[in-house]
């Protein structure tokens, strides 16, 4: 099976806590890149989200800058009021119209991950109260990537995971605590990454 090189996380309502749980389970040697679209108010302070996450995570968390390199083991968060996309090992930002009233939008991030990483991408839809991420997760799955959805019954808000499951029924359903360990397995070891 192809090793996952890019993990894309999407979260909305209640997402910060859920993301912290997932990232908290990743070791400092985690060999894949993690990109995150978390819905946030556009007036949100720069760096606040990454600061919060940094305190719970063995990996370095930064807010995306345009065309920055996506290195193994780095965690890159979409800035407020920008869409985050990925392209051949680099981040790319856009100020295109919000999608699902959201910028960053999870669908935009996932769509770019599917196109650029194909079966080397994993998409994870976490708690939220809308349908963002459902379309993008289906795109990741259609390109042979790995689809994971937080168990709607255990999510703080079930609407977003439920919508993702509706669009991608083959997605793996996991309790929040199981997602980090599953990603560790999908990403393999740092030795695999060098091969």
């Amino acid at each position: 099976m192809t090793r996952v090189e890019l993990v894309a996380l999407g979260a909305s309502w209640g997402g910060l806590q859920a993301i912290e749980t997932v990232l908290g389970a990743l070791p400092s040697t985690f060999p894949a890149t993690v990109v995150i679209a978390q819905h946030r108010p556009s007036a949100g302070q720069d760096g606040m989200l990454e600061h919060l996450l940094d305190t719970h995570c063995a990996l370095a968390v930064t807010e995306a800058e345009d065309k920055q390199e996506l290195r193994p083991g780095c965690v890159v968060v979409a800035p407020a009021d920008y869409h985050l996309l990925v392209d051949a090992g680099r981040a790319a930002l856009s100020v295109d119209e919000p999608l699902h009233y959201s910028r960053p939008s999870i669908d935009v991030l996932f769509g770019s991950a599917a196109a650029a990483y194909g079966d080397r991408a994993a998409g994870v839809v976490l708690t939220g109260a809308n349908a963002d991420g459902a379309h993008g997760l289906a795109q990741i799955a259609a390109r042979g990537g790995h689809a994971i959805v937080q168990d709607p019954d255990c999510a703080e808000r079930s609407e977003m995971p439920a919508a993702a499951l509706w669009s991608t029924p083959e997605a793996q359903v996991l309790a929040l605590e199981q997602i980090g360990p599953a990603l560790v397995e999908l990403a393999g070891t740092p030795e695999d990454a060098r091969r």
Partner: peptide, 9 residues
Amino acid sequence: YALASLRRR
């Protein structure tokens, strides 16, 4: 142009 956003459009 940057491929990722161009592709979307």
